[in-house]
């Protein structure tokens, strides 16, 4: 990755809990701990991949970083030209400025575009809102972003139903790019697409990143897609980060038992690799009643006594880039 690592997001102990209420007085009886204490720096220009099974809180994490979901606790500091500001305490005006810098691409391109509006109208709106006054200027920007995603500019007068899934996702990406953001949060951008179309969109996203020097937060459940896109990968399990590593290191030397299991569960389209499958027993526990200790302990093949009582802390290896939350690596051992 880039040599001078400038931090763009500094996330500290981020928690997003959804309260469960009961009765007429809406008494809080519990919390769905969707994101439960995530701390991490995101560097400028990198692609941070976020993987995990459904319900592990990866989408909620993306939404919280974008402030579409209000965090329960913790800080998200964003680098405004060298100055870090905590976006959780932003006023409406500050938030407006922040939104220009950080944009989001959603999972389902079929529901992300208003079917009753022409693409032109959908594309014009963010520009109007963000103060591009003249129509000529707006149109110039629209043409520009459409060119970036390889869609003919005269398609602007069409309706969303006239486009295929892949084209729609490219339109969604183009719309996010209109305000010239620095960060793009992509929540499962290719999981609704076919494999042949998926590759088109992934490559396009890579080219755009190179041209615009974007930072990507790339959320997906498909580890092979994330590994293709990301420089660093963060693995989540039940709202917590279990491992963060360089994408190559994570693939070659996974440390956390969950990451190992996740990697071995991926079917490989090659009939000559004889891979020893490690199949996880059971399912992800409910995020309401998390097991005590390490959240993974009841499925972990290497579970120890301490795992059942004590939540493991994040441990860094020597380089400081490979982080893992597992008792196997604590106790002074240097991995």
């Amino acid at each position: 990755m880039s040599e001078n690592k400038e931090v763009i997001f500094r996330i500290k102990n981020l928690k997003t809990w959804f309260p469960i209420t009961k009765g007429a007085f809406k008494k809080v009886v519990g919390n769905v701990k969707a994101v439960d204490g995530v701390g991490l720096d995101i560097y400028k220009g990198e692609t941070l991949g976020i993987v995990g099974e459904s319900g592990c809180g990866k989408s909620t994490f993306g939404k919280t970083v974008m402030m579409l979901e209000k965090p329960t606790d913790g800080q998200v500091e964003f680098n405004f030209g060298g100055e870090f500001k905590d976006i959780t305490k932003f006023t409406k005006d500050e938030m407006f400025e922040f939104r220009k810098k950080v944009q989001m691409v959603f999972q389902d391109p079929y529901s992300a575009l208003n079917p009753q509006k022409k693409i032109y109208t959908s594309f014009e709106e963010p520009l109007k809102v963000h103060g591009v006054k003249t129509e000529a200027e707006r149109e110039k920007i629209m043409q520009q972003v459409l060119k970036m995603v390889n869609i003919q500019p005269d398609y602007l007068m069409r309706y969303p139903h006239e486009f295929s899934g892949g084209q729609r996702q490219r339109l969604c990406i183009a719309r996010a790019l209109e305000v010239m953001p620095e960060v793009l949060i992509c929540d499962e951008p290719v999981s609704a697409l076919d494999v042949s179309i998926q590759a088109q969109v992934l490559n396009l996203m890579k080219y755009i990143q190179r041209d615009m020097k974007l930072t990507y937060l790339f959320i997906a459940h498909d580890l092979s897609v994330v590994q293709y896109m990301a420089d660093r990968i963060m693995v989540m399990y039940l709202g917590k980060v279990v491992e963060v590593a360089d994408s190559k290191a994570l693939y070659e030397k996974p440390m956390h038992p969950y990451t190992k299991a996740l990697l071995s569960a991926i079917p490989v389209p090659d009939i000559h690799t004889t891979k020893k499958r490690q199949i996880l027993e059971g399912e992800v526990p409910s995020p309401i009643n998390k097991p005590a200790g390490c959240a993974f302990h009841n499925r972990c093949p290497q579970c120890m006594e301490i795992c059942k009582t004590k939540d493991p802390d994040m441990i860094r290896d020597q380089g400081g880039e490979h982080m893992v939350a597992c008792h196997l690596y604590s106790g002074g051992k240097d991995q």
Binding site: G166, Q167, D194, V195, A199, L202, N203, S224, Y251, I266
Partner: peptide, 25 residues
């Protein structure tokens, strides 16, 4: 052939670009 090549697999070399099938079905 194209279908098999357009699937991202784990352990792709750095900077390797996926092959795509042009156009749509």
């Amino acid at each position: 052939k194209a279908l098999l090549r357009s699937v991202p697999v784990l352990g792709l070399a750095d900077g390797q670009i996926l092959e795509t099938i042009p156009g749509i079905t």
